[in-house]
Design a protein around this nucleic acid. Structure first.
Length: 424
RNA sequence: CGGGGCGUGGCCUAGUGGCUAUGGCGUCUGCUUUGGGAGCAGAAGAUCGGGAGUUCGAGUCUCCCCGCCCCGACCA
């Protein structure tokens, strides 16, 4: 991608209002644009990053047998009255409004009310179980207070997975599988997520949250630095400095952002909608359900909160919007400039063919310093500079975003180097 | 929903009742320059968030409304 053609620009000035790190950097670097409180447009850079995260989520959901579907975001009132959630929590959480005439609708903030009747259409025997379906969709929540950029929005991206089981053992088995898939997802997104015990609601002792320690987080958790055991303060009786009951280490209090959570719903929704199956015993049983959520947009915001420095974002490899920033530094010698540009074009083409799509800063009349500053702000993991100087040694300059070290690499080796870098 | 802060060209900002609203960034033209956001010359771009009021006169004072940010409450 040529930077000169990229829709969305970096900005030197800091937005007056954006004081959360993720909102400020993502806006300044041209990834997102705020439309209103808690609602953002994703510009090409931001959308590519978000799509990378969603793709990782897809891969891991598919790996545990999840099947992707897409339910509507516009939902009818009646299904929500079945569970009582039209009025409680009702408009406190759900955007509700009238369509034509008196017909009432709401925007989806979770989808148990949709997926349970849906499952009912296809489940009759124990032979139809278990299965799990998921979707990646924007959710809408009438937040009393949207805040912290992408971390708490009124419209935000959500992956919600729902699993259906014949018995509790099978639900537990899948629950563990889902938890492991979640760990892999966060790891791949460059986030060290803690597996945190949280309020279980009416039917389980605990649910589990995946929490990323960061000062901008709004949850307080107690976590053991030795073994990682953690509890949300909402349910915890720990105090800072307590001994970890699992390993004898020390429990620390910390702020964290919840990037995912998993619940055993058991028969809460299947009972409400009459989702049952006939067992091998010929008897009718309630289907047991689990639900599992991840907010890709919140993952994106969290990644910026965790991975940045004073100059800008430092993208983790797997979710970076582009592999590397290729920068053409030109001088006054037009012959040399032509060679620099030609080398860059060829390099960009070679990288693109190998699937390592770079962002090529081809801008003319822009000084090197400005290009470097933009590269740091955008935060791709690798920066490759081609100039008359480097070409004198048939080389390009190789620099990692998180390292000050500059290295000359033969032009012919750059593609291989970058392939190796991203394979690691 | 309570408390606090803020609202002036695309972005940041000056302004504390008085002439035609300040400067910077960005944008556009031309020249110059090219390894860390350069320089020169010129240009476009604002009904000062909206409404009502006080005043000879309001970006500035008063009231109402809207919006954004922060703290709190809330967050299956």
């Amino acid at each position: 991608m040529k930077y000169s053609k990229l829709f969305g620009k970096t900005s030197k000035t800091v937005l007056h209002d954006a004081d959360s790190v993720n909102a400020r950097l993502l806006t300044q670097a041209g990834f997102v644009d705020q439309l209103m409180a808690g609602v953002y447009t994703y510009l090409p850079l931001g959308l590519r990053t978000l799509d990378k995260i969603k793709q990782i989520v897809r891969e891991e959901m598919n790996a545990i047998g999840g099947q992707e579907i897409l339910m509507p975001a516009l939902l009818p009132k009646d299904l929500w009255e079945t569970t009582g959630r039209w009025s409680d929590p009702g408009p406190e959480v759900m955007f509700q409004f009238k369509g034509r005439g008196e017909r009432e609708y709401g925007l989806g903030w979770t989808h148990e009310e949709i997926v349970t009747p849906l499952a009912k259409r296809f489940v009759s025997s124990y032979r139809d179980l278990p299965f799990a379906v998921y979707q990646i969709q924007d959710k809408f929540r009438n937040e009393p207070r949207a805040k912290s950029g992408l971390l708490r929005g009124r419209e935000f991206s959500m992956k919600d997975l729902y699993s259906f089981h014949a018995n509790l053992e099978d639900l537990d088995r899948f629950y563990e599988q889902a938890a492991q898939a979640y760990q892999r997802i966060f790891q791949r997104c460059g986030l060290a997520a803690l597996y945190v015990e949280a309020s279980g609601g009416a039917f389980s002792k605990y649910s589990h949250e995946f929490q990323v320690l960061t000062e901008s987080g709004e949850d307080i958790i107690f976590h053991c630095e030795k073994c990682g055991y953690a509890q949300n303060r909402e349910i915890s009786e720990f105090a800072d400095g307590d001994t970890c009951p699992k390993c004898g280490g020390t429990m620390h209090e910390g702020k964290a952002i919840e990037v995912g959570n998993i619940f055993r719903l058991k028969d809460r929704f299947s009972t409400a909608f009459g989702l049952t199956y006939t067992g091998a015993d010929g008897q009718e049983h309630d289907v047991l359900m689990g639900c599992y959520g991840i907010g890709p947009s919140r993952v994106l915001g969290s990644a910026v909160e965790v991975h940045h420095d004073e100059r800008g974002i430092c993208w983790p490899k797997e979710i970076t919007p582009y592999s590397a920033q290729v920068i053409a530094v030109t001088g006054k010698d037009s012959g040399a400039n032509a060679k620099v540009l030609e080398t860059c074009e060829q390099l960009v083409q070679d990288l693109t063919i190998t699937g390592l799509e770079p962002l090529y800063d081809d801008r003319e009349g822009v000084r090197a310093g400005e290009k470097f500053a933009d590269a740091d702000l955008i935060g791709l993991p690798v920066r490759i500079v081609i100039s008359e100087k480097t070409l004198a040694q048939n080389s390009g300059e190789w620099k990692l975003r998180t390292d000050e070290k500059l290295e000359l690499v033969a032009v012919s080796d750059i593609v291989g180097n970058l392939q190796r870098f991203f394979r690691k």
